[in-house]
C-alpha cells in the first residue's frame, strides 16, 4: 500500500484564547500581554510556541501550549482592565489537526473553497472544510487546521479521506 499523500496528525494539548476587543485601541496592550505582535488582517503572527491569529476585525485567537493558558488569560485580563473586551478560554472548544507532507495543499484543496496555494506564508484563512467550519494556516511542511471539538471525528475522517494514497491532484 502506498503512503497517504499527506500526514494527518491530531494535535492535543494546545491552549486557545478568544480575544474580542477594539484592536486599534487595545492592540498594544494585547500584544504585550500575549507576547506577540497583533497580526494584520487575515494574518497570524508566530513566535516559538505561540501564535496570534486575526479572526475578525474585533477578534484574535491566541494559540499557545496548554499549560500556559491560565497565566495568559490573567495577563490579558489585566492588560485589558477598563477596556471593553471579552476574553474566553476556548481550548476545549477546538479540534486541531496538522496536515503535512508535499501534498498537504491538495488535502486542503479537496475540502476548502479557498485557494491555499495563494495563502501568504503568514496567512490565516477562515472557511469551511466540507460541511464544518474551519480555519487553517501554514506550519512547517504543511498546514494546521482548527475546527470544533464536537466534529473532531468528522474533521479527522474527511482529512484522512482527502489524503488517501494515490489521490494527489497533480495530473498524471
Amino acid at each position: 500500500m502506498a503512503d497517504a499523500i499527506a500526514t494527518v496528525t491530531p494535535v492535543e494539548g494546545l491552549g486557545m484564547v478568544m480575544i474580542r476587543a477594539d484592536l486599534t485601541r487595545a492592540g498594544n496592550a494585547i500584544a504585550e500581554a500575549a507576547g506577540l505582535a497583533v497580526p494584520e488582517m487575515t494574518r497570524i503572527t508566530t513566535d516559538g510556541s505561540r501564535s496570534l491569529g486575526w479572526m475578525s476585525p474585533d477578534e484574535l485567537l491566541l494559540v499557545l501550549p496548554g499549560p500556559e493558558i491560565s497565566e495568559a488569560i490573567s495577563a490579558l485580563e489585566q492588560a485589558l482592565t477598563g477596556e471593553h473586551a471579552l476574553i474566553a478560554d476556548v481550548s476545549d472548544a477546538r479540534a486541531v489537526f496538522d496536515i503535512t507532507g508535499p501534498h498537504a495543499g491538495d488535502v486542503i484543496a479537496k475540502l476548502c473553497p479557498a485557494d491555499a496555494a495563494a495563502l501568504p506564508p503568514d496567512g490565516l484563512r477562515r472557511t469551511r472544510a466540507a460541511q464544518t467550519a474551519a480555519a487553517f494556516w501554514r506550519i512547517e511542511n504543511g498546514f494546521r487546521m482548527i475546527g470544533f471539538r464536537s466534529t473532531a471525528d468528522y474533521l479527522g475522517l474527511i482529512l484522512r479521506n482527502a489524503a488517501i494514497p494515490g489521490s494527489q491532484l497533480a495530473p498524471n
Partner: peptide, 15 residues
C-alpha cells in the same frame, strides 16, 4: 463525492 457513509454529514458528539 466523499459525503457518504460516515462522512455524509458532520456528526456532533459531546465529550
Amino acid at each position: 463525492a466523499d459525503a457518504r457513509g460516515e462522512a455524509f454529514q458532520p456528526l456532533r458528539k459531546t465529550p
